[in-house]
Design a protein around this nucleic acid. Structure first.
Lengths: 361, 361
DNA sequence: ATGAAAGCGCTAACAC
DNA sequence: GTGTTAGCGCTTTCAT
């Protein structure tokens, strides 16, 4: 064996050195139960001298709780989940919990598998984002396990504890604003449409707005979410439907990279095409033009969800099996402007070719 | 107590149901040691019927290993760490380890405190990024604890296991390129300069290039890393040193938001000012103009570091106490161009005022 | 005030 | 091939 953990001091070592029993050590170090001043100082001294630290594994086994929260998100590479994790961390740390993190890559099987591992490790509770909150093997499993959990981002129709924003309403609002600005022809750009109920809810929302206005249903444009280069897909769309004047992207990462792709075509945002995102990640306010988007309180959602889970764990609260909707806000940005009345001359194929040559050289 | 974990089936329950001892159950379920076909099927059946899952806490206590890796990074909100975590995850999952995640917020005290918690939870090894790899209480502590660890991103001078890119060399290369393009006056923009050895190494690198060329040392511009709005700071710089023609940012997030801020001043990138980043996060290739940056293999660094740690844990390898340098690559991008020979007219104060009014209305 | 002992779930000698 | 037992580190009755 290479470099392994050297035998760390246990409570027995401390007891031996302090000349008392392990029970006394435990009482002193935990500050519970009686202990004479003499014993107290001897124990403290011994613990100090030995550099004693509790072994939380032993404690967990006996206490039947691990002070650990499981977290399952699709990926940490999308800042929206990263920001939520920061929020979860905040609350967890403040309340003395650690985070066991797993990423599912938008794959329900991996969700289930990760969940299984986390449950085996006896997490006290779970915060997770699943592919499809209304039909999730992972949710079934965590329910069977009777472990407190709260979803984040997911906005289930069924009775499941969750903290989210109102995806449908927010997207409908975006739809209304697009229409008000004259964008009768818009497209909805999504990454993992099949694997994200949020994405579908958002699409439904914008479609509802368009339907209500009698406008044509926005085309659904699915792009590879791993690849951040969407030039080909967008070029195809603009060729197919040149009247498209706005892109509503399922999340900010997508929106940002869509803007990048459009610029490669020498298309100006918002003069030639408007772009709207969803999430309100930190970077969305830092770029210029600022990204018009739905600002969601990602970190607060993480904090709230973690808080509820911990309340549930500690018996402070029976976690309600319903979605807590946190307020969203449409945040205007330079990436969204009124549609041109005349369709711009978009020399797409040549521009595209040019851009690609430039880049691939 | 609210909803707690209901008593889960233990190995004893399985044994009872299968009519054998716990030892047999353990042997069968772990696939080690002898077991008759009859026993095997009875155990499997019983386990199935009871929905038995090992309690990893019990296992860990007995085995003296947790199959858990501790991960400490400054923040998960910076995509560069998020991407590294994805890499760590990859390897960890492949080799059967879970991740216990902690964020230090660039604070050495929090590093130490997080470390302490992770060690108490008996992580088998650690992957971490510390503030200052050459003077880190956390490193001292993890060494004392004799727990295998590898740093990521940190590039220590002292003998510490690490996986990183050569920050100094990469930054010097950026410096050389800036000079070659006529940027005799550049500024280095950093977030947590005091709290990031990487940042300092990068600054030293670019300074070395400038010194060698006899050019004036790039000014160090420290900005609030939490706030992504750097307009005021940048405006002050450009007023103070209007001859500045390029910004070299300590990381891509900073670079991206710097570009955003400049656009708010109606300054064009790269016509008026060039911007170079460092890291090569996914978004840096998606924006337009593409961000010129040092592309670093963040995910690979995470994978490699995790791999080494696990090799160390499993005694496959004695982790070498030295920095493994992974290759970086300068990635050109439209954000960097030759400096203008004549200084552009930069109506800064009015532009700034205008931009801010627009945004704050 | 203190200690002995049981036991959390599991594995690994060791006996049979 | 199988069971008994001890013990991983800790807390917690229950005696004393």
């Amino acid at each position: 064996m290479g470099m392994g953990v050297v035998a760390r001091a246990t409570i027995r070592d401390v007891a031996r050195r302090a000349g008392c029993s392990t029970a006394t050590v435990s009482r002193v170090l935990n500050g519970v139960g009686p202990a004479s001043e003499a014993a107290r100082t001897r124990v403290l001294e011994a613990a100090q001298a030995l550099g004693f630290r509790f072994n939380e594994i032993g404690r967990s086994l006996q206490a039947q709780r691990s002070r650990t929260l499981g977290v399952i998100v699709p990926t940490v590479a999308n800042p929206v989940f990263a920001e939520a994790i920061d929020g979860i961390q905040d609350t967890a740390r403040a309340r003395g919990y650690q985070l066991l993190l797993a990423c599912s890559n938008y794959d329900p099987n991996e969700e289930l598998q990760s969940l299984s591992m986390l449950l085996a490790k006896q997490v006290d509770g779970l915060v997770m984002t699943v592919s499809n909150a209304d039909d999730s093997a992972a949710i079934d499993a965590v329910r069977r396990a009777q472990v407190p959990f709260v979803l984040v981002f997911n906005q289930p129709c069924t009775a499941v504890p969750a903290v989210a924003v109102d995806n449908f309403a927010a997207a409908r609002e975006v739809g209304a604003r697009l229409l008000a600005l004259g964008h009768g022809n818009a497209a909805f750009v999504a990454g993992r449409f099949r694997m994200s109920d949020r994405s579908r809810q958002r699409y439904d929302g914008v479609c509802a707005a368009y339907a209500q206005a009698g406008a044509p249903q926005p085309e659904l444009l699915e792009v590879d979410y791993l690849l951040l280069d969407h030039r080909d897909t967008l070029a195809a769309l603009l060729e197919r439907r040149p009247e498209t004047s706005a892109l509503f992207c399922s999340n900010d990462m997508l929106a940002l990279s869509a803007i990048g792709a459009l610029r490669e075509f020498a298309l100006r945002v918002p003069e030639d095409l408007s772009v709207v995102g969803f999430d309100g990640i930190a970077l969305s306010t830092a770029v210029s033009p600022r990204l018009a988007t739905i600002a969601t309180p990602c970190a607060a959602m993480g904090r709230t969800a973690a808080g509820r889970v911990i309340d549930g764990i500690e018996g402070i609260l029976q976690i309600p099996a319903e979605t807590l909707i946190l307020p969203h806000e449409f945040r205007p940005g330079g990436s969204l402007a009124a549609a041109r009345t005349v369709s711009p001359a978009r020399g797409l194929p040549p521009a595209q070719r040019h851009a690609r040559q430039t880049l691939e050289s």
